[in-house]
Design a protein around this nucleic acid. Structure first.
Lengths: 225, 225
DNA sequence: ATCAAATTTTACAACTCGATAACAACTTCC
DNA sequence: GGAAGTTGTTATCGAGTTGTAAAATTTGAT
C-alpha cells in the first residue's frame, strides 16, 4: 500500500447518488486526513459551495435529475476544482468534462488509491508550491503566518497578513480597492474603502515598503518586486 | 470525431522509444495545430528543454536506459508540465508519477482524442490569461493597465491609458478630436478639445512616439504602425 | 465585566491629475 | 512672405485623492 501524504487537510465535497461509492470515497478521504461533505444529488451543490470553503468537488456525472455537466460548469464558475466520475467506456463524456473546465476525471470502476493520488495532485497544484516567499530580504511564511526581516520576526495582525498575502499573490499587478476589500474583507463588507489605505500604510511602515507598495492613483495599490 | 480547439499553438516534446506510438502522437498533435519535437530516449530531454521553449512534455516512463521517473523529476524541476504514458495495469506507476510532480498520465493503450483533451487541459491551465497588444517594442496590457517598453514599466495615468487604448483600437485610422473627446472624456464633457492635444503630447513623450502619432491637420490624430 | 489589542472611522495635511491658459511653433493659403 | 488659423509646449491651479495620526469602536481573552 502506498502511503499518501498531503501537507494540508482539505475539505472535499462528494456528489454521488450511489451511496456505496459515495461512502467508499468518504472512507478513503478520511483515511488520509481530509474532511468531506456528502451529497446524493446535484441540487444542493451550489448551496454547499456557498456556505463552505470547499477545496475540491468529486462529482459523478451520472446523477439522477440535473445534468452532471451543468453542475460541473457551475462549480468551475466558482473556481473550485472538480474531478468527475464517468463510465469507463464513454469517451465523449470523458473529454467533454475536461473541455468545460474540470480538472480531471476518473473512470468507474476506479481504484481508490488512484483517486486519492489524483486528488492530491490537484490539491498540490492549487496550493502554494512554496509556502515561503522571499521578497526583498523579507521572508513571508504563508503557513506559519510569520514575516521575518533579517532574522527578526515582525508581528502581523490578521488583516495585515491577509493583505500582505493578497499583494504577494498578485505582485506587480495593480489591485483596485474594491478587489482588495472583496478578497480580504469579503463581499459583505460595507465599510469605507479608506480602511484599505490605513492597512496599506501599516504594511508600508512595518516592512519599510514605501517604495515596494506603489499607489495607483484613483485605483488601488501594486506590490512591485 | 470531436473537434479540439486551442487558442494557441504549443511546442510539445514527445519522448517514446516506440516509433509507432511516438509518430501516432505526433500526427494527432499536428492535426490540432501544435508543433512537436520527437525523441526516442530520455537522454537528450534536458538538452532539448534547454535549447527550446517547450510548453509540455509527453513521456513514456517505460524507456530503455534511463529511469522514466527520474526524467519526470528533471522536467518538473524546470517547471515544464509532463504527461506520462504508463501501462494500464501498473497502478503503482500511475500514482508515483503524479506524486513526483507530473501533471497527468495516460494509460496505454490510449485514445488519441483523450490524450489531446488532456493536453489541452494542461495547456489551458498553464497559459497566462493575456490580453496584450505589442506595437513597436511597446507591450500594452489592457487587463493590467500597464505599458512596458523593453521590460520597463511606464506608468500611465488614467486618461493617458484610455487615450492610448483608443488609438490602438483605431490604429492607422485618423480620429477627430470630437470623437476622441467623446470616447475618452464622455459625451458630457463640455471643455476645450485642446485638452486632447495636451494628452497626445504626453503620450508622445512617454512612449517616444513623435513619429507614430501623426497629427491630422484641422482634424485630429492617427496612430501609425 | 474588564482590559488590551485589533480594526474602523474621522479629520486634516499632502499630494496627484488633468483642465485650462498663455505663448511659441507650425500650416495653409493668399 | 505674412496673416489667420491650428497645433505644440509649458506652467499653473483647483478639485479630488491619498497619507497619516489619532480617536472611536469592535473584538477577543480572561
Amino acid at each position: 500500500m502506498l502511503v499518501m501524504e498531503c501537507d494540508r487537510m482539505a475539505k472535499i465535497l462528494i456528489v454521488d447518488d450511489e451511496r456505496a461509492i459515495n461512502d467508499l470515497i468518504a472512507v478513503h478521504l478520511k483515511m488520509v486526513g481530509h474532511e468531506y461533505i456528502q451529497l446524493y444529488s446535484g441540487d444542493q451543490v451550489s448551496d454547499v459551495l456557498h456556505a463552505n470553503k470547499i477545496d475540491l468537488v468529486i462529482l459523478d456525472v451520472m446523477l439522477p435529475g440535473k445534468d452532471g455537466f451543468e453542475v460541473i460548469s457551475e462549480i468551475v464558475k466558482r473556481n473550485v476544482p472538480v474531478i468527475y466520475l464517468t463510465a469507463r467506456d464513454s469517451l465523449a463524456d470523458k473529454v467533454h468534462g475536461l473541455e468545460i473546465g474540470a480538472e480531471d476525471y476518473i473512470a468507474k470502476p476506479f481504484e481508490a488509491v488512484e483517486l486519492i493520488a489524483r486528488i492530491h495532485v490537484i490539491l498540490r497544484r492549487n496550493q502554494r508550491e512554496n509556502n515561503e516567499i522571499i521578497l526583498d530580504h523579507i521572508v513571508v511564511d504563508l503557513d506559519k503566518h510569520t514575516v521575518m526581516v533579517q532574522g527578526q520576526r515582525i508581528d502581523m495582525t490578521n488583516k495585515e497578513f491577509q493583505l500582505l498575502e493578497l499583494l504577494i499573490q498578485n505582485k506587480n499587478i495593480a489591485l483596485s480597492r474594491e478587489r482588495i476589500v472583496e478578497r480580504v474583507w469579503g463581499f459583505d463588507f460595507y465599510g469605507d474603502t479608506r480602511t484599505v489605505d490605513v492597512h496599506i500604510q501599516k504594511l508600508r511602515k512595518k516592512l519599510n515598503w514605501d517604495n515596494q507598495i506603489k499607489t495607483v492613483y484613483k485605483y488601488g495599490y501594486r506590490l512591485e518586486v
